[in-house]
């Protein structure tokens, strides 16, 4: 049973995800005139995997290795009091972000609150020259003045729906699914490995 709701449709399959990531890799390089000063930072728990895929593509295109990090935002959430999860993942940014162009990578852009938290977390670690945002899916419904610089696919959705990314590395299958949300449930990312248990 999938606790995220019933699957209504699959809006991206594995090949579409691959093509989108390849395009985003090119767009990042074009916008920044190469990979010289950029570093990728993915937001746990699936943005970090997307960032890794993007880094591999950028490496294949430009022949350089871009610095890659992962950022956990659970200590920066604005809903600690009402929506507590005891899980804290690890932040690993093994390079100096000062003066770099940081491309934040996340799976689904929704209210913008995760990105707000990620920006705060990033600023506590250092002072990047600029921060750009790459997301695989933009589903709308922003609650903060935040927009993505690079978008894989715009997926119009209703608030009664959940949009979830599954990735081969942790879920055994790669897809973006739209699920119906039971009344009172909140949209959030699928627990790692949920697909495998089905």
């Amino acid at each position: 049973m999938n606790e995220g709701g019933n699957v209504k449709s699959v809006c991206m399959d594995e090949r579409e995800i691959d093509r989108s990531l390849t395009r985003i890799a090119h767009q990042i390089l074009e916008a920044n005139k190469g990979a010289g000063n950029i570093a990728l930072v993915g937001i746990v728990t699936r943005g970090d995997l997307l960032a890794k895929r993007l880094a591999e593509r950028i490496g294949a295109i430009e022949g350089v290795e871009v610095p890659l990090g992962r950022l956990d935002i659970s200590l920066y959430r604005d809903d600690f009091a009402t929506y507590f999860s005891p899980e804290v993942h690890s932040t690993q940014i093994p390079f100096d972000i000062d003066g770099k162009t940081i491309v934040l990578v996340d799976d689904v852009l929704f209210t913008g609150r995760t990105i707000r938290a990620a920006l705060d977390a990033l600023m506590d670690i250092g002072r990047p020259a600029c921060v750009q945002l790459a997301v695989l899916v933009d589903r709308g419904h922003r609650q903060l003045p935040i927009r993505a610089d690079f978008v894989g696919k715009n997926v119009p959705s209703s608030l009664e729906e959940n949009v979830r990314l599954f990735l081969d590395e942790v879920d055994g299958v790669s897809a973006v699914e739209i699920l119906s949300l039971a009344p009172g449930d909140r949209a959030h990312a699928a627990p790692i490995g949920e697909k495998e248990g089905e």
């Binding site: 956990d72 200590l75 600690f80 932040t91 506590d124």
Partner: peptide, 24 residues
């Protein structure tokens, strides 16, 4: 084990230049 695992995560916060998070 959960307390020790979370303590391990907080190690990273304590090794930053800004050793503070806004959680609480």
């Amino acid at each position: 084990t959960l307390i020790l695992d979370i303590a391990e995560r907080f190690r990273e916060v304590n090794e930053r230049r800004i050793k503070k998070v806004p959680t609480l």
